[in-house]
């Protein structure tokens, strides 16, 4: 079907003495939406943040095992996390646009990475990103207004546009719709489905319905273990592990 984008082998994460991720091996496929589900505190967000080395900023955090992106170890000495993060974009739970204009929000990534040479190209990248994030129509007349003046759902789509603008290969989403109302959530989900054609998308979610709706692959995490990983339909209709079944049928979580 599709090839492996990020290959994880025996990944362990420790926060000081706390063993947060226990021996996780998982292949993230290209041009696929992979959902990480599981109860609160199970480590799904921690694992997501390993994929773009955002955990580096936490000094007590220690990671072992191999995480290979296109066959290259992202934790190798030769890899600069700054470079990596340009290739692996991320969208957070709470919309966090910069308190700058909408235009500057989107243009920031291309600017610092030198993706374009002139203003015309930059304008094009901004427009393309905003279009792809399905927010262009709403903001095209107010690009100079502050990004923080938008509604919650618009802000989150702006953040997605901002992440897309750096032309990443992988897009990580940490509960991107949990702070939004149902209409905005539906828009975001639709958008994720669109993005699948271009990127490898990894989404952490608390909502089983959301995982079922948007993802092709689902991984279930529990207490730092990755309990089960497979096709989304398979996981939701025919889970192998008892814990997975208990979780998706709502017995805990």
């Amino acid at each position: 079907m599709t090839n492996v984008k990020i290959s994880n082998r025996h990944v362990d994460v420790y926060y000081g003495d706390n063993h947060a991720i226990k021996d996780v091996s998982i292949d993230i496929l290209d041009k696929t939406v992979t959902a990480f589900i599981g109860p609160s505190g199970c480590g799904k967000s921690t694992f997501l943040r390993c994929l773009n080395r955002m955990n580096d900023t936490i000094s007590s955090c220690r990671i072992t095992g191999d995480i290979l992106m296109d066959g290259e170890d992202i934790y190798a000495k030769s890899v600069d996390p700054v470079q990596l993060r340009a290739r692996v974009g991320m969208v957070f739970q709470k919309p966090n646009p910069f308190p700058k204009s909408i235009y500057d929000n989107v243009a920031y990534g291309p600017k610092i990475h030198g993706l374009v040479d002139n203003k015309t190209d930059l304008d094009e990248v901004v427009e393309l990103s905003l279009k792809r994030a399905a927010i262009w129509k709403e903001v095209k007349d107010r690009l100079n207004e502050s990004g923080t003046s938008l509604s919650g759902g618009q802000q989150q789509r702006l953040c997605i546009a901002r992440a897309i603008a750096t032309a990443p290969e992988v897009l990580l989403m940490d509960e991107p719709a949990s702070a939004l109302d149902p209409i905005a959530t539906a828009q975001i989900e639709e958008l994720i489905d669109e993005l699948r054609h271009q990127y490898s998308v990894v989404i952490v979610t608390h909502s089983m319905q959301q995982a079922a709706r948007v993802s092709q692959k689902t991984a279930f995490f529990h207490m730092g273990d990755m309990v089960e990983y497979g096709d989304t339909t398979e996981i939701f209709t025919n889970p192998v592990d008892q814990r997975t079944q208990d979780y998706i049928t709502g017995r805990f979580g």
Binding site: V82, R85, A86, F92, N96, Y108
Partner: peptide
């Protein structure tokens, strides 16, 4: 300065210095 701004900039691939100079310092 809210950490979410730092995270946002860092996730875009801004270096520590860029995060400080472009976002934290002006705010």
């Amino acid at each position: 300065v809210p950490p979410s701004i730092r995270d946002g900039a860092m996730a875009l691939g801004a270096s520590d210095l860029q995060v400080s100079m472009h976002h934290v310092l002006p705010l």
